[in-house]
């Protein structure tokens, strides 16, 4: 079996719980992400999603376990893994353009200043930021615009893996919708591999190729990997008409509402905890001849 592009093996995170004991956030989590895939991880707060994200970014070290990307072990942060943080993390003393260009300059130290600026402007334009706006400081931008800058900064660097940590969590629903569309567009053009955290089920279905479902902590695990069997290009008004949409949505709601609790708190006994693949397809074109039974089997 060949290793996937991004491979997470037996990842375990434990903390001292402050009372002399040990708290296991997750244990032996094992899953993979293929090149060009858009994978969303969904779970309740506190289940360790952000910890996984920080480990993938190289900002935190796991207690044990290995992350490899493109055949190399991940240790420490790298320009190959771009991060869009929930709170944008723009540098407030730099203009919008400089916030993007400093990253581009770090990625391409050999480029001329003009080339760096032009590249940065192009990516800002892709998320709809042009003209005077790019010379403003982040404090003079709305939350939505700031997150656009952050997305432009990440995409402009062409990282091998893009990590999005609840990027739209702090935005209102309307702004979120617009930026999701922009993200889909810019992702579609780039073919980037994306790993994203979210709380929002509809957002996850709209964006993802595959959704990883995490149980509650402690001893959280990635229990299921749900394929999103809705063809691309997707847009928010059309996908709700698709026959699979509500079947998938119901499955996710059921999981988050009930089974994430039922499955919580089971120690792994050292075995790799791989997610079970779930494929829900009611269109009849699927290779799986009995999607209904498959679905039922998973739900028991």
């Amino acid at each position: 079996m060949t290793k996937p592009f991004l491979s997470i093996e037996n990842l375990t995170q434990r903390y001292p719980d402050g009372q002399g004991g040990i708290m296991t956030v997750f244990e032996d989590a094992t899953f993979g992400v293929e090149k060009g895939e858009f994978v969303v991880i969904l779970g309740h707060s506190g289940c360790g999603k952000s910890t996984i994200m920080n480990i993938l970014a190289g900002l935190a070290d796991p207690t044990s376990g290995v992350v490899t990307m493109d055949g190399r072990e991940v240790s420490g942060p790298s320009l190959d893994r771009g991060v869009v943080f929930q709170n944008y993390s723009l540098l407030p003393w730099l203009s919008t353009l400089k916030n993007v260009s400093f990253g581009v300059a770090a990625r391409h130290p050999d480029w001329s200043k003009a080339k760096v600026l032009e590249h940065s402007r192009n990516y800002l334009a892709m998320v709809g930021l042009e003209g005077d706006v790019i010379h403003r400081k982040p404090s003079q931008l709305s939350g939505g615009m700031r997150q656009r800058v952050s997305i432009a900064r990440a995409f402009a660097n062409h990282p091998k893996l893009l990590l999005l940590d609840e990027p739209f969590g702090a935005l209102d629903a309307l702004t979120r919708g617009t930026i999701q569309d922009e993200l889909l567009k810019i992702w579609g053009d780039s073919g980037q591999t994306v790993f994203m955290i979210t709380h929002d089920i509809d957002e996850a279905i709209l964006l993802a190729d595959r959704i990883l479902l995490m149980t509650n902590g402690p001893f959280a695990r990635v229990a299921e990997s749900v394929d999103i069997t809705i063809p691309r290009p997707r847009n928010r008004t059309d996908i709700v008409e698709h026959p699979n949409y509500y079947a998938i949505r119901n499955h996710l709601v059921q999981f988050l509402g009930k089974r994430s609790k039922d499955l919580a708190g089971q120690a792994s006994d050292g075995a790799a905890q791989r997610p079970e693949t779930v494929r829900i397809d009611l269109t009849g074109t699927a290779k799986d001849p009995t999607p209904e039974t498959r679905l039922r089997a998973v739900n028991t």
Partner: peptide
């Protein structure tokens, strides 16, 4: 820490981080 993380994910060295992130942030 967010700003330091930005520097880290962009692989800025210690000296570069000190001058481009920490100094302006603490100025």
């Amino acid at each position: 820490q967010d700003w330091v993380n930005v520097a880290r994910t962009h692989e800025l060295g210690h000296i570069k981080t000190a001058f481009t992130v920490i100094l302006p942030a603490a100025a």
